[in-house]
Design a protein around this nucleic acid. Structure first.
Lengths: 359, 359
DNA sequence: CTGAAAGCGCTTACAG
DNA sequence: CTGAAAGCGCTTACAG
């Protein structure tokens, strides 16, 4: 068995007790009595290596407790096996679920996830993308389209494949995996119209840097417009996505005479709807009887809060899986074609909505 | 201005239109007419470089759109500027908040976060740590102590500083930043005893690979024991952390005669308590009057659900900040001393708890 | 303050 | 199937 010492003598070989040095691939090669090329192949292309030799390598690696150095690998192979994801915030279970799903897909493929949060700040998102390019991400998932053009330019310039998640729009310039939010809110509004509602109000979260919210509002307005019912500005409140604020807005919206005030309140998400329900309780109004109210997301809570919140559920785990799967396919394949995928939310009718009260 | 071409001619310099190559530090050096060392210093140690020269470098970098390659940097400097965090799951807002906080601290220090989820599987956590060592994390935050000894051995062997978060125990072998869960549940139980409760029940989540839950249960049992009140096994239910299951368990626990059934129900967290409240509604029992119930976490919902849930709030954002700050201090400094930090949860008394019912 | 040059730990044509 | 050797893109003693 050849046991010629490696050419470069290193601190590793110091007499005894010298500062322990990191174990490198070369050390494994020496112990196994093979070349570094063979060690590398034993790990990355095992089928190309003689079985006995491979075993010797693996044993040596285990004995030395060798842990490969990803930076070395990345530099030599020009592959980092890193992919990035940028979400607005971790404090929303919808995005957390997408990330969970992506994690599990990426892990299965031997990829590691770099996570960035933009906190709904477009420039922060841009900085994150720069940082990720530095890290050499091979692909990127990013929530929504509300990002500076420079961000997408950067991605294209560096040939990093990416997908936009959560949002789906037919005329989007990006590969999208998500929901058509405008359509979703048209659907919900239509349902309420069919229940006989004619006086609508809406409680929404902030629209800045969040086209999804804009689309949702348009969905409501479009559907009402088609029915010849405008949504007057004073019946649409926009403010912090906060339960207490929603409760206050609800109380205010319901201030008028019973035969004039809204009978249907479309909320931008479940949190706002649940907040509004608290406001209703204070007024002594019963959801599903005195008025109807709807949300979006179907949080765990939505079905548990009496009388149950009518809302729409989006399979965000699936979005994450699809996005990650698509990215794995796109890496290395500049061809395509790769197609967007629309996920249709599931309408979940519960007690909070019902026929419009008589008059 | 010296403009000698770099020695290695590369595809970059191909006549025209050749496949565009990545811009490297060397390209910046050539354009700026300086050595690679100067480019490197202009970025990493700007104060050591003549201002005019630095400007030339920065301009050249901007003109070429150079994005540094982290793998090259890591390999040359033996510093990756990556730190890892391992949490059980992203689907819990407490961990998501810790991660958010760490992200922002790390970003501020020029570090990037690798996130791993163990899904409460100790071996998965171990694999994540191995992957992170491959990536060269310089430090690691990990939720809880419930991990295989090999995991911590690996960290020590590779001299990677780490902190355990969320949990704090005086006699823990690890640097901890978190809560003494046993003490927290003793406190809660004592409070209920002071309100006159004598018949207790408890609804908890699974204990496996989760010492925190074990500690919480012990906290209840210890405090009751000190008061001469055992917690009989049939009054302690353990099962999935699921609202419906908590509701069912609650109904079952309350099946006995009014003068025999529990008057105080301590739940392992808010989710279980809110589920149990749903069960109470079905039974026509009013929390705070007919019985008392408590949670843990103080989810956004806890204060909004009538009559308000008595619970304990933990500043998980602070835990993340402290953990990240500590890790930033530990990197490079093998000395110390570094101390654990205990965060005491804030007891939040709300309507769901009250004096024990008369008989 | 600046530069020439070695080297970080891997992978991968290339040759055998 | 295996090995010798060049090279990936940076940083950093070292010398001036």
């Amino acid at each position: 068995m050849t046991d010629s010492p490696s050419k470069k003598t290193r601190r590793l070989r110091e007499p005894n007790g010298g500062a322990r040095k990191t174990v490198r691939l070369e050390d494994v090669a020496v112990l196994a009595g093979v070349s570094t090329a063979t060690v590398s192949r034993s790990i990355n292309e095992p089928e190309k290596v003689n079985a006995e030799m491979r075993k010797r390598v693996l044993d040596a690696a285990a004995e030395l407790g060798w842990i490969p150095n990803a930076a070395g690998r990345a530099l030599a192979s020009n592959r980092t096996h890193i992919v990035g994801a940028i979400i607005p915030t971790l404090d929303a279970e919808i995005f957390a679920r997408q990330v969970s799903a992506m994690q599990s897909v990426f892990t299965r493929h031997g990829y590691t996830l770099f996570l960035g949060c933009s906190n709904y700040d477009p420039m922060a998102g841009y900085q994150q993308v720069r940082a990720m390019l530095t890290r050499g991400v091979e692909a990127l998932a990013i929530v929504g389209e509300d990002h500076p053009a420079e961000l997408f330019d950067l991605l294209k310039h560096h040939r990093v494949p990416y997908v936009v998640t959560y949002t789906y729009r037919l005329d989007s310039p990006h590969l999208c995996i998500g929901v058509d939010h405008r359509k979703a809110f048209r659907t919900m509004t239509r349902r309420l119209l069919e229940m006989g509602h004619r006086r609508f109000a809406a409680i929404f979260q902030p629209t800045e840097s969040n086209r999804r919210v804009v689309d949702r509002i348009h969905g409501v307005a479009d559907e009402l417009g088609d029915a010849g019912l405008p949504l007057p500005p004073e019946r649409l409140t926009i403010g912090p996505a906060d339960m207490d604020r929603a409760a206050r807005d609800f109380v205010e919206l319901m201030a008028g005479r019973p035969d004039e005030r809204p009978t249907a309140v479309v909320c931008g998400n479940d949190l706002l709807a649940i907040g509004a329900l608290n406001g209703a309780r204070d007024l002594g109004l019963v959801a599903g009887r005195d008025f109807s109210i709807t949300g979006f997301d179907d949080l765990a809570l939505a079905s548990r809060i009496p009388p149950g919140l009518t809302t729409q559920w989006v399979d965000n785990y699936r979005i994450g899986e699809l996005a990650a799967g698509k990215l794995m396919n796109m890496i290395g394949k500049s061809d395509g074609p790769f197609e967007s995928a629309e996920l249709v939310p599931e309408l979940r009718l519960r007690g909070s909505s019902g026929p419009a009260p008589s008059p």
